[in-house]
């Protein structure tokens, strides 16, 4: 076992423990959020081990650095000291949750048991978007960094519009009515 694989298992353990901490921590919201940070950061480390350096940086920057910080900010802004721990009344939801969990597990196990194919079988470049993008915009060159703006220019632009909509939406939602 190389050091790389050993580190993967260590970070995987931290990620699972952090997720369990978020799930099972009923008393303290802030501690739950910190558990989530542990998961996010160890996922970032796993991305480094998998060779996805850019994603690792973005993962830590966006998830650990922005999203969970905003969660904590809201928790503090609303000053929620203790969690409202009301056990779920609906048995239906619990059964549903266990069913979905079983379904995902089943899917995973069948996918692993069949062995993974040597090459992707799905359509390339977000399905047919690539052709649309190719028709709309000039293709970028084949360097790795430009692939985002080459093959994926259409999803990329749509993502920017989505972000703009989210900015406007959150401002409208959270602002106090000024009469």
């Amino acid at each position: 076992m190389t050091i790389e694989v050993a580190l993967f298992y260590v970070f995987a353990l931290v990620a699972v423990l952090g997720a369990l901490g978020l799930l099972l921590n009923f008393r303290n919201l802030v501690a739950g959020a910190i558990c989530l940070v542990a998961t996010m950061v160890s996922l970032g480390a796993i991305y480094v081990l998998l060779g996805a350096y850019f994603l690792a940086a973005v993962q830590i920057m966006v998830y650990a650095g922005a999203i969970v910080v905003v969660f904590l900010f809201v928790i503090m802004l609303l000053n929620i000291r203790t969690d409202v721990f009301t056990p779920s009344q609906q048995l239906l939801f619990k059964i549903f949750g266990i069913l979905i969990a079983g379904f995902v597990l089943f899917q995973f196990l069948t996918a692993i048991a069949g062995g993974l194919p040597a090459f992707p079988t799905t359509p390339d470049g977000f399905g047919g978007y690539r052709d649309i993008a190719g028709a709309l915009f000039a293709r970028g060159d084949a360097r790795e960094g430009t692939q985002v703006v080459g093959d994926f220019i259409l999803p990329f632009e749509i993502a920017s519009l989505l972000l703009l909509a989210a900015i406007v939406g959150s401002v409208v939602l959270a602002k106090r009515r000024l009469e």
């Binding site: 910190i34 940070v37 950061v41 970032g44 350096y53 850019f54 690792a56 940086a57 973005v58 830590i60 920057m61 650990a64 650095g65 922005a66 910080v69």
Partner: peptide, 17 residues
């Protein structure tokens, strides 16, 4: 690192905790 500047940003965002 090839992604040195991004590393700085990532670490800087962790510092908020």
């Amino acid at each position: 690192c090839d992604w040195g500047v991004l590393y700085l940003f990532a670490i800087g965002s962790i510092a908020a905790y």
